[in-house]
Simulated scan of single mutants.
Amino acid sequence: MENDLQAEIEIAASPSAVWQLVRDPAQMPRWSPQVESVRMPEGESVDVGTRFTNRNRDGELAWVTHGEIVRYQPEREIAFRIDENWVTWSLALAQTSGGTLLTQRRETSEGISPLSTELADGFYGGVAAYGEVMLKGMRETLAAIKTTAEE
C-alpha cells in the first residue's frame, strides 16, 4: 500500500539475542522516540491475541492507542495491529552472516482510519508528512535496538 513504511538494520548479534529484546511490546519505550509507555495485562504471556495499551508522545502532543498481537513467531516476527488507526506494526528477524537483519514495517493493508487521517492532517500537515515522522522514528528505534543488542 502507498502508506506502508519499512526500515531495516544489520545487528551484530544472533536472532535469538535480538528476539529477547523485541519479543515483548512492553520493551518498546526503551527504544522508540514516540512510545512513552506500554501496559500489558498482568500475568498474561505475550502471544497472538494479547492486547495492550500504549501511551505515545511527540512534543506536546500525547495520545493513547490500543494494540493486539496478530503475529508471533519466536525468533522470526512479532506484529501488532493498532485499533485506532488500523495500522499493523511488525519487527521481523532474519539471520545473516554477520548476525541479524531486523526489519520494522508499518503495514496499512486496511488503509488508515478516518480518525488517524484527520489527526495527521491537523497536527502534521497530512498522512505523507506524518509518514516521514514515523520513518524517522523507525530508524531511531532500530538504531537504539542495535546499540542495546551489541553492548
Score class of each variant (00 low, 15 high):
66 H>G: 04
109 S>Q: 12
51 R>F: 07
91 L>D: 04
49 G>N: 03
93 L>V: 00
60 E>I: 06
35 V>I: 15
39 R>K: 13
30 R>M: 09
151 E>A: 14
48 V>C: 05
100 T>Y: 05
119 L>W: 02
127 V>E: 05
139 R>A: 15
51 R>K: 14
43 G>F: 04
102 L>R: 00
23 R>L: 09
13 A>F: 13
57 R>L: 03
75 E>G: 03
134 M>P: 02
1 M>S: 15
2 E>T: 13
28 M>T: 14
112 I>T: 04
34 Q>A: 12
32 S>K: 03
128 A>D: 10
86 W>D: 07
65 T>S: 13
83 D>H: 11
123 F>T: 07
148 T>H: 13
150 E>I: 12
127 V>T: 11
143 A>Y: 10
142 L>S: 11
78 I>W: 09
81 R>G: 09
140 E>C: 08
56 N>T: 05
7 A>E: 11
18 V>I: 03
97 S>K: 12
148 T>E: 14
148 T>K: 09
119 L>E: 01
12 A>T: 11
129 A>P: 01
113 S>W: 01
63 W>S: 08
145 I>C: 09
62 A>F: 08
13 A>G: 05
50 T>Q: 02
73 Q>A: 15
144 A>I: 09
103 T>S: 13
142 L>P: 00
10 E>A: 15
93 L>S: 04
36 E>N: 04
74 P>C: 07
38 V>T: 11
143 A>L: 15
143 A>F: 10
124 Y>E: 02
32 S>V: 03
124 Y>D: 03
83 D>M: 08
68 E>F: 00
133 V>A: 05
50 T>C: 09
87 V>C: 05
93 L>C: 03
75 E>W: 05
36 E>Q: 12
73 Q>D: 14
96 T>K: 12
92 A>R: 12
77 E>Q: 11
15 P>C: 10
51 R>I: 04
71 R>M: 08
19 W>G: 07
125 G>W: 02
27 Q>K: 15
13 A>N: 09
21 L>S: 07
50 T>P: 06
7 A>H: 06
64 V>C: 02
6 Q>Y: 06
109 S>A: 15
31 W>T: 00
80 F>Q: 01
37 S>E: 04
16 S>T: 07
95 Q>P: 06
79 A>H: 00
20 Q>K: 15
123 F>R: 11
143 A>E: 14
10 E>Q: 14
56 N>H: 07
136 K>Q: 13
68 E>S: 13
101 L>A: 12
122 G>H: 10
138 M>D: 10
13 A>M: 09
87 V>Y: 00
123 F>W: 10
120 A>P: 00
115 L>I: 02
77 E>C: 08
27 Q>G: 14
106 R>A: 13
117 T>I: 10
73 Q>R: 14
47 D>L: 08
105 R>F: 01
34 Q>G: 13
142 L>R: 11
114 P>Q: 02
34 Q>M: 15
27 Q>N: 14
17 A>V: 03
57 R>I: 01
71 R>Q: 11
97 S>C: 06
32 S>R: 00
39 R>D: 13
114 P>G: 01
130 Y>T: 00
150 E>K: 06
142 L>M: 10
151 E>R: 12
133 V>K: 04
131 G>A: 08
105 R>N: 13
45 S>C: 13
83 D>E: 11
133 V>T: 15
115 L>N: 10
113 S>H: 05
97 S>W: 08
11 I>K: 00
90 S>A: 11
12 A>L: 05
120 A>G: 02
104 Q>R: 12
84 E>G: 05
71 R>P: 01
17 A>E: 12
